[in-house]
């Protein structure tokens, strides 16, 4: 009888150990998964940031062209597009030497 009791206790102890171990293992795996996910998200954010360009808020086809006042190289002020457009289309080349 005592031997059976000892046997049962030993079994119960082993079972508890196994269950605790598997819980610990599961928890560890979950933590690792969470860490990996977080890493992925962080890399994703970095990746997107790396590729992101300056936002393009330029006027689009069909929009009314923004008016401007600029000086010409000869110093004469051309008030806006209308002042030289004269019912004709206007081609604008923006740029610099470099």
């Amino acid at each position: 009888m005592r031997r059976t009791m000892i046997g049962l206790l030993a079994l119960a102890f082993l079972a508890t150990c196994c269950v605790t171990e598997s819980f610990a293992q599961q928890k560890k795996e979950q933590q690792e998964e969470a860490k990996q996910d977080e890493g992925k998200q962080r890399r994703g954010r970095r990746g997107r940031r790396g590729r992101r360009q300056r936002p393009d808020n330029a006027p689009k086809v069909g929009d009314v062209a923004p008016v401007f006042t600029l000086k010409s190289l000869d110093g004469e002020s051309e008030t806006d597009i209308a002042s030289f457009q004269d019912d004709r289309p206007v081609v604008l080349f923006f740029g610099s030497y470099t």
Binding site: A58, P59, K60, V64, A82, P89, L92, G95
Partner: peptide, 24 residues
């Protein structure tokens, strides 16, 4: 004007005679 057209570093626009952009 560069900012109004977001033109940097370079860019081409064509404005119709009615003031609307045909090429941006």
């Amino acid at each position: 004007v560069n900012q109004a057209y977001n033109a940097h570093p370079d860019r081409v626009f064509l404005i119709r005679s009615d003031g609307r952009l045909a090429v941006a």
